[in-house]
């Protein structure tokens, strides 16, 4: 399997605290990798370093052989990386359709000048954005709510909307930060369904999640963090048997 994402020795120190220490792993094409760990293990910090929101103290990440570390955030979308946020970041004052159409930005050539003079390119772009947005909206089944303000949707629907917005431009690699957090069982199953469907289309995922049932069901490989260090990596079955992982989650027996 060809490597899509390569993480090499990522380390982040906040003052004297080492939040993430020497983490290395790969994500192959068409693979779903989950990052799990107790609260404060450094999952989100790791996530933010890969997606260039934080610059690492040490180490690098590569995507398709390009160095990611040090890139500007907007550049990632152009490389084919999409991400969602733990604390939902949707555009509250835009309609659902407009939110999803925003996701098509990297496919469009609209700028302030050709928009101001309404050059033919604009109409073409609107059509591209609309077509792409419609596909994504169909996938998550938000057709009925297309013209509602995004801020008025329920939390579960907003999560689906954010997911739809991330997949509009058909990225190769999607990073999800706790995609199931706050969702009920029905919504969780639906979200898992979308992820599986996109995986079958060859898209890779890296996600952080606390709901173990979902992780075990979806992930091809799991990486376990504890106190900023990688303590285990393997298939769901291997992880469930791993003594270190059990100790991290349940505590060690003091004898």
């Amino acid at each position: 399997m060809s490597k899509l994402l390569e993480v090499r020795g990522l380390t982040k120190q906040f003052g004297g605290v080492t939040a993430v220490s020497e983490i290395s792993f790969d994500v192959g094409a068409g693979e779903i990798v989950a990052v799990i760990g107790p609260n404060g293990a450094g999952k989100t910090t790791l996530f933010n370093m890969i997606s260039c929101f934080l610059s690492p103290t040490n180490g690098e990440a590569y995507f398709k052989g390009n160095k990611l570390t040090g890139q500007k955030i907007p550049q990632l979308a152009h490389l084919g990386i999409a991400r969602t946020f733990q604390n939902l970041q949707i555009f509250h004052n835009l309609t659902v359709l407009e939110n999803v159409m925003m996701g098509a930005h990297v496919k469009l050539k609209t700028n302030v000048v050709n928009a101001a003079f309404r050059l033919p390119r604009i109409l073409k772009d609107e059509r591209i954005a609309y077509d792409l947005a419609l596909d994504a909206i169909h996938l998550v089944g938000l057709e009925e709510l297309m013209f509602e303000q995004a801020g008025q949707l329920s939390y579960g629907l907003q999560k689906q909307l954010e997911f739809a917005r991330a997949i509009v431009y058909k990225p190769d690699f999607i990073m999800l930060d706790e995609p199931m957090a706050g969702l009920n069982d029905y919504e969780t199953n639906r979200m898992a369904g979308y992820i599986k469907k996109l995986k079958s289309e060859g898209i890779s995922f890296l996600f952080v999640e606390h709901k173990m049932a979902t992780v075990m069901e979806l992930a091809d490989r799991i990486i376990v963090l504890d106190f900023g260090k990688k303590i285990a990596e393997g298939t769901p079955d291997e992880i469930q048997q791993n003594a270190k992982v059990i100790a991290a989650y349940l505590g060690e027996e003091v004898v």
Binding site: L76, R83, Q89, H92, N93, M102, H105, L108
Partner: peptide, 28 residues
Amino acid sequence: NIVRSHVGRVLRSIHDSEIATETLGVKV
């Protein structure tokens, strides 16, 4: 013309969440 195009949506997106707008590939 500006407001009723993709640029208008970009501007309103920046208003709502700059970080999400950047993630979508917009040079805010």
